[in-house]
Write a protein that binds this DNA or RNA. Structure first.
Lengths: 347, 347
DNA sequence: GTGAAAGCGCTAACAT
DNA sequence: ATGTTAGCGCTTTCAC
């Protein structure tokens, strides 16, 4: 064991490559070769080294490897927070995919550096991580501008950024909203309220567009009064729902731009003593896990959240292996999930 | 900018301490002093250095700092996965507390190394992180044994390990279960089914003990037939719920050992066309966010999940700052949360 | 207060 | 196939 001279150094002494080399009676670069793979090493030597390493309980020091060779085998994930079914499902996908790889995950939450996004990203990109997955709803440019070079590998999830060709994974928001609205029509609804998300989010505006397109196609006039402002949160959905339900001509169905808002709208409906789906139909978007736990179970549009995470990782690793590769955008399909929160309007 | 000689090195060139030193016209150890804090540096020199660094856009390389003897300022978190309200709430607390500190978070999920826990922990502890928070339900010893030295800083969340004095944060599981059972008694229930968690988890066994203690105190005979085996998942809760409801003398209330199981039990009750809480009362434990979203809203025992995460971080940082400090155990209080899933039994 | 120099554990030329 | 050597970017003695 090499004894650290530095007293402020981390306490736990560790076995290094040098110790293993001595134990095995070879030079320490040979040991390095054995553990960094790929190099040719005599089978017998390799065995000796592995045995020695095992005896000593050797484990590589990833920092040192990274410093010396360049790769940390860590990818960074930047998110607003993980206390949200939507994000944690995507993270689950990321995690799953990473499990098949040699990479580990560094989790960065944005709230820590509000207003200092640029510095944060620089710190992140400088050294520790090989690439970055950005799952941040807003102000992407603040983050992206700070990337140390044009070609630092990153991928955007669920948002598009047109100023710079960026590797991106998103879903068919427009189509999903279009399909869902048509489903409501097929049930006989024509007065369909819409609880919007923040318009700066392109997922939100695409969904609104899909809703409007379906209206148009059904030759139902678009009525701005039926669109209430929400913000993708249950609280916002609740308030928007209240507004919609107070309307003189109450909608018979409400399309909330995401599931969380739909939950809020459900609460609002209950406050009006309205039966769901008897008196009012409610639908959401995303199909987060809670959507099938609430009562009644929510009809919604499924985004392949887990798959989004997986694809994000795959795209990033692809980029890592082949930096020359051009940025590309993968748009995954959505799917109508019919559950118990809709019924034909009362006659 | 120093040009890396190694072609496989990460593409993005970065500004180093040497560049800053040259720019500022000082030696690079002075630059180091400026950024690693604490050392005495002439105020004017410091200003020059800071200015130069800013001009160049310098950011420290944490790996190098860590390797050289400093701290990585990263703590590791080991969890089974984050797709679970219980865990993600705790993580939220961890994240919040970390935000006030200089530390970043490395997220490790256990499923990647099943059967290789020891190796995994070694890898984690060896180098990259300064300390570790273990939020792993089972087989803790496999993990702990592998810690490089006796004094590698770690803290256990929601589990106790008696073989070695360990810094721990947990909650009053026994008391919570006791209180909750008594609440059910106060409503008039006496036939109270219990859906257990895995008995190896001490949270699960403590809750069962609390339930039994309340029974005893109320002089109600303990009936093993009323205890169904669950596993802390909705699926397990559903099956256990079914078993309980099939009993000749059906319980009038069900105490599920955690909220997730309670959700499963609710589904089971609905399958029997039982009204909750009219025909049967159901309670859970944990108060995860979903508990107030399900319908009817779940009566449960609140664990201060966020606070648990915060305390875990605080304990770890405390240990990091003062390695000599003895391990201690912090047990946080639980609290009865009465919502809509209980009513007196039908006469 | 500041500079010079050693070394953290490892990888990757460059030798042999 | 293996050993030698020079760093990766930084912290930390040890001089001055």
């Amino acid at each position: 064991m090499s004894v650290p001279k530095n007293p402020r150094k981390k306490a736990h002494s560790s076995v290094t490559i040098v110790d293993v080399a001595r134990e095995a009676g070879v030079s320490y670069s040979t040991v390095s070769r054995v553990f960094s793979g790929f190099e040719f090493v005599n089978e017998e030597t390799r065995r000796k080294v592995v045995a020695a390493a095992e005896r000593l309980g050797y484990v590589v020091n990833l920092q040192a490897r990274s410093l010396a060779g360049g790769r940390s085998n860590i990818i960074g994930l930047l998110v607003p927070g993980i206390d949200n079914g939507y994000i944690s499902e995507i993270v689950k996908g990321i995690d799953q995919e990473l499990a098949h790889s040699q990479y580990d995950l560094m989790l960065y939450t944005t709230h820590r550096y509000e207003g200092k996004e640029a510095y944060y990203v620089k710190l992140i990109a400088n050294g520790l991580v090989d690439g970055l997955i950005l799952l941040v709803p807003l102000i992407i440019e603040n983050y992206l501008q700070a990337l140390p070079t044009q070609d630092f590998p990153y991928v955007l999830v669920d948002q598009v950024y047109n100023e710079r060709p960026s590797t991106t994974v998103d879903v068919t928001n427009w189509q999903g909203a279009y399909d869902l609205t048509n489903y409501l029509f097929s049930l006989g609804h024509t007065r369909i309220g819409f609880i919007a998300g923040l318009n700066e989010l392109n997922s939100a505006s695409e969904r609104l567009d899909g809703y409007r397109a379906a209206l148009k196609q059904q030759r139902v006039a678009y009525n701005p009064a039926l669109v209430a402002e929400g913000d993708y949160t249950p609280g916002g959905g609740y308030r928007a729902g209240l507004n919609l339900l107070r309307l003189p001509e109450r909608p018979t169905a409400i399309f909330a731009a995401n599931d969380l808002s739909a939950f809020g709208a459900m609460d609002a409906a209950r406050e009006f003593n309205l039966d769901i789906p008897g008196d009012i139909s409610i639908v959401g978007f995303d199909d987060i896990p809670q959507a099938s736990i609430v009562y009644p179970k929510l009809t919604t549009v499924r985004q392949p959240l887990i798959q989004m995470g997986q694809v994000a990782v795959r795209l990033l690793l692809e980029k890592l292996d082949n930096p020359e590769k051009e940025a590309r955008r993968v748009t995954l399909g959505t799917e109508l999930v019919i559950r118990d929160s809709c019924a034909p309007p009362r006659a």
